[in-house]
Nucleic acid binder design. Structure first.
Lengths: 200, 200, 200, 200
DNA sequence: GATGAATGAGCGTTCATTCAT
DNA sequence: GATGAATGAACGCTCATTCAT
């Protein structure tokens, strides 16, 4: 990577960080391109070198953190299923807490918005999350961690619903509870009681 | 109520119905005051006689349907706790399905938005829902349906989280599953397994 | 028409006149909505009450003057064909001269632009002019002014071509010749020599 | 010419050809410098090494084709005047057809635009065409093809007007007729009938 | 000569809200 | 109470042009 490319990479990073900073403070609807570029210390037009539309900057923080966490879950085969899922929930909520409540709000608006790029075809994001978790549970069946007759789709649905429910409630409560604490409590009570009868 | 007041009441109703109709079709951000008034068959300015700001029309559909359902839950004392909660979930999702996915999307945006009027102080909506359900569970303890050492706050939290998780996931999936079917499945699996050990 | 409607009509007129004035001075591409509204003494947004898009204000001066002239031609049945056509050319160029060279430039750009509203379907304007003049010549055949075997389509084509040729050349020469003088000269030489052999 | 100059010449050619290609497809206003350079396979900035302003690339296709045709007309002394002019019209429209309707549109906008570089002083293009054709007719007088009292300026005017009228109408009709066919028909009817009385 | 990131003025358009009638 | 013309701030986006590398 030469100097030019480095500097471009840098500008891109500055824009994303500026957007993130403002997002944390205000939320997406409340900020505009001019503010982002001002915060980043570049000209308005520069934004459009890196992002085709204003919305496109969301995809930078919307897809990736969760994808990484899911990959982590797939690769972690050393512990039992409940521990793995608990870890998944923990990492998920850690990420949520790290990015802060305003960005979490944007994520939710993002995943429920049918006009959003990441979600433009029939609940893409939902399908993605669903398939990903289903695979985990299917593997658990094959590894003899779960019984053969486990209602996998149903459990997948329940677990994802629980995850997004936590996020929605956290935002709704305006941050009244600690995401990580609750993630643990949720797992201990819910995951255990739901999975109990299907575990071998 | 004289004729003038009646006619005013009528105009107000027409505006709300028009807004609801458009909301169902398009979502809040995609509609504007002019469209609402056109649909209602009144002049643009008329809107501002009944609503101070565009957003204010949301409050018309935001709090009340759920409040009624909650009241219903409180008053229904004839069946056992699980049936009552199942009924609550069912009525909740019935309401969600009835209003349609776009309005459901607005509800979610609404409840997570800290700048919203219904929600403006410290997660009001969350507190409201929380207290309401907590009361139900506390009554169940007093009525000897639940054990004395039941972790009421935790269960309340879990149940609300589950409810909003279903809504969020339904919107996220762009309506891919049937809310009422899933409400039943959720209750059968989750409510039962969670409450089992605390029921007397 | 009540006071409100009158005032609206007035605003609309002011906008058109402002646009015309600026158009005469600068040409369409060189002016913008803000300038037009400033000149008209109204707010920027007011423009969009009367015109959906910036371009729409062109249609106000683009279609009508010529339509009137064509109607005049159809109704004038008292003189012979050549005089009638000469009169048509004269009125046409009078109109051109009256509106000035910059507006004439816009008209030309307008009629040749396939993306223009007035012209959006396959050379609408051309078809319109063509049919209109063809009708005149067909009537002349029926009235025994022209021979039965007159090549009407060809002549129609020639005459319209001549008309727009004059306009294009006038703009091209930057107003170097007098439209009305030349209109007369053109008619005397061309119309006469072309139609001579078909006149009865 | 050394290697560098050759490569520069090549880049310049690529840019012009790219611009022409896009011009044919879309028209001038619809394309931008970035597209041109992309099509040419060079960087955006390269454009400004060869052309001071975006508009300057027009001059590459605006004057020259017609100049050549005019030169051809001057040099062809072997046939009679009408045949020569018919040939001129033919070659002119052949050129028009070859370049396509969108470029023809640009030519027209170009010649009528007083701010254009090729045309910037007092209808330069008009004067140029006019003088060129006038010279042909004057030569015809000197060669005893035309009578001494032929109204040369008037005929020059008529003929040029006819030529540009055809172009304008072709664009206006969105290509509804065949330029070459019509060129012939025009010449047969118009040139003949106009020149008839002045030919010796 | 070539590159392509950066610039920033400029423009069209939207729309919640006001207020004279 | 109802109207709808008027407002004007706000914003997304384009694109010709420059210039350091």
């Amino acid at each position: 990577m030469n100097k030019r490319q480095q500097s471009a990479q840098n500008t891109r990073k500055k824009l994303i960080q500026a957007a993130l900073k403002l997002l944390k403070e205000k939320g997406f609807k409340a900020i505009n391109v001019e503010e982002i570029t001002k915060e980043a210390g570049v000209a308005k037009g520069t934004f459009y070198i890196y992002f085709k539309r204003k919305e496109d900057i969301i995809s930078e923080y919307s897809r990736y953190p969760f994808k990484e966490i899911a990959d982590e879950l797939k690769n972690k085969q050393d512990t039992n299923l409940i521990d793995r899922l608990t870890h998944y929930f923990y990492r998920f909520m850690e990420c949520v807490e790290f990015h802060g409540i305003n960005i979490c709000r944007e994520w939710i608006k993002d995943v429920i918005d049918p006009n959003n790029i990441n979600n433009s075809q029939d609940g893409q994001k939902w399908v993605y999350d669903f398939e990903m978790l289903k695979e985990i549970l299917e593997n658990a069946v094959q590894n003899n961690e779960l019984k053969k007759d486990t209602p996998i789709e149903l459990l997948t649905h329940l677990i994802i619903s629980q995850l997004y429910g936590m996020m929605t409630c956290w935002c709704m409560s305006d941050g009244k509870f600690e995401p990580l604490d609750w993630s643990d409590k949720f797992c201990k009570i819910q995951l255990n009681s739901i999975l109990k009868e299907f575990l071998i």
